[in-house]
Each structure stands twice: as C-alpha cells, then as structure tokens.
C-alpha cells in the first residue's frame, strides 16, 4: 500500500494497455475484420446462374484457404445471371485462367463461400479479368432431394411404376418416405393404408422407370436410418428372371422392427457381440 505514487500510474497504465490490446485482439483477430484483406488485392469477375445465399464479404477460398472475399454481387441487366466481383489478395496472383469458381456451402446449414479450383492453364487471370468457368449453388430443395430422395423429384424425371407390398407392421413409415436399393434412392412410398381383409399394411411403392429390371422375388423391408432416423423401404434384389411390373405385388416383405422388440432382443442376448447379431438378423 505504501508504494510510491508513480507505481500506481505505471501499473494502471499497463492495465489499460493490456485491456486495449485485448480489445484490439478481439476486434481484429477473432471477428470478421480479420477477413478484410490485410494488403492489396485485385478484383476478378465471375458469373453465376444462381448464387443462393452468397453474401458480400463472404470468403473466397482456394483449397480451403481464405484468399479474399466477395466484393459485390449485382444482377446483370441484360442476362439472368449474377455478376460477382471477387476481391483476391495480391499475394495470390497466379490463379489459372481456366480455374473453376464454385459456390459451396460450409456444411449442410453453414454459410456459403466461393471456392476456386485451379485449372491447368499457364495463363493467370488478370486484375479485372473474368473466371469463365463457374458452378452455381445447388438449391437446398435439390440437395435435400438428393439426400432424402423425395418422391416428387424422382417422379418428375422419368416417370414411375407402382408396386404393392404387404407388411405386418410398417412402424412409422409414411407416404413420401424413400425407397432404396443398395442404399440408393430409386423411388418413394406412394401410400400406406391398412388392408381390411388381410389385416396388414398395404404399401404402394412408386419406383423410377429407370429401375425396371428388379426381379419379382425381391424382398422389401422397412428400415430405420440410424437409431432415431426416419424409416424407409429397402429393396433386396432376388434371383428370378421375371421382373417387377406396374401393379405387381411383392411377396417377400420384412416388417419394421419395433423398438420394444429390439430392446427385448438386446436384453435377452445381453452381450455387445450379440447385439450385432440382432442387427444382422433384422436384415
């Protein structure tokens, strides 16, 4: 306490400097200010037919490394394409002219950025030049369609044919759920209803016309993607020379596993290695 007066001033000064240094660090190193180009940059044009959610100041990356940012996005008056100006650091001035600019999404829900994949041209794109080869963003619906094989998308492409299958239990399977073969979506569930006579569930599968060589002794099973995922119909091809046609009924079906059954099996069999068997047994 009895320090001479000046030491307070020095210590306090140090404290203030430290505080401001921390602030400067937060503001410049951990925020989007860090993304504002540090040195000189040059501007390159790229045209996209669809920019999706791309925003100004979104990063421009090469091989995942940030090299610049989106400077502006404008719609060209004469075309229905978006004109995107990319501001790229001077340090990266050897981008081949035939490089491909693609709009990527970081993860499924992340923000979009422009990725540049190097071409092979000896000539580098100059300041003010244009990257002619671009790939636009994929609309989310399309991506989700690919992901989940939403019926509509497949139906609209090449037409489909309907096949019936009876299950003693469909679990939570509902119309629109994907139909997969070898893990690939080939169609969707058209309808699910109970048969008043057979007392089982009648499921109508709508399968893409392209897949018209499915043997008629193939089996259909209701599977769950992961433990808590949604349910889908998996088709296991058989060996018959006869193929399934529109309106046919699949004979071999395997119903959805009830969670209670699974747990029951697990408890009965007990050990983890048995759990694997239980899983195989459901196929």
């Amino acid at each position: 306490m009895s320090q001479p007066r000046s030491s307070y001033a020095v210590g306090t000064g140090l404290f203030i400097v430290l505080g401001f240094a921390a602030l400067a660090y937060l503001a410049t190193q951990t925020s989007s200010v860090a993304n504002v180009h540090q040195g000189d940059s040059y501007v390159v044009d790229a045209q996209f037919t669809n920019i999706g959610q791309l925003k100004e100041r979104a990063p421009v990356k090469i091989a995942g490394v940030r090299v610049g940012q989106v400077q502006s996005i404008t719609l060209r008056a004469d075309h229905d394409v978006a004109d995107v100006k990319l501001s790229i650091d001077k340090g990266y001035d050897h981008i081949p002219l035939d490089s491909v600019a693609t709009i990527f999404t970081s993860g499924l829900l992340g923000d979009q950025y422009v990725g540049i994949e190097y071409g092979s041209s000896k000539q580098a794109v100059a300041a003010g030049g244009t990257l002619a080869r671009t790939k636009s963003t994929q609309p989310l619906e399309e991506m989700l369609g690919k992901f989940f094989g939403a019926g509509g998308v497949v139906d609209n492409v090449g037409g489909s044919y309907a096949v019936k299958a009876g299950f003693s239990n469909v679990g939570t399977l509902s119309a629109g759920a994907p139909v997969k073969m070898a893990g690939v979506v080939i169609g969707s569930v058209q309808s699910v209803h109970a048969d008043p006579v057979k007392l089982n569930a009648q499921v109508v599968l709508s399968i893409d016309k392209r897949y018209n060589a499915i043997p008629d002794d193939s089996s259909a099973a209701v599977f769950t993607s992961g433990l808590i995922g949604s349910q889908y119909v998996a088709i296991q091809p058989g060996g018959s020379p006869e193929m399934l046609k529109d309106g046919d009924e699949m004979i071999l079906t395997q119903s959805a596993m009830q969670l209670e059954d699974l747990i029951g099996k697990f408890l009965v069999n007990g050990s983890p290695s048995d759990k694997k068997d239980a899983g195989n047994g459901s196929k």
């Binding site: 190193q29 951990t30 925020s31 989007s32 200010v33 993304n35 990063p59 940030r66 923000d111």
Partner: peptide, 11 residues
C-alpha cells in the same frame, strides 16, 4: 477454428 470464428463474429 479461426475461420469459422472470424466468419461469424461481427465487430
């Protein structure tokens, strides 16, 4: 770690 942070933190 850094790029996601700098992309989302606004001054």
């Amino acid at each position: 770690f850094w790029s996601n942070m700098t992309a989302q933190v606004d001054v």
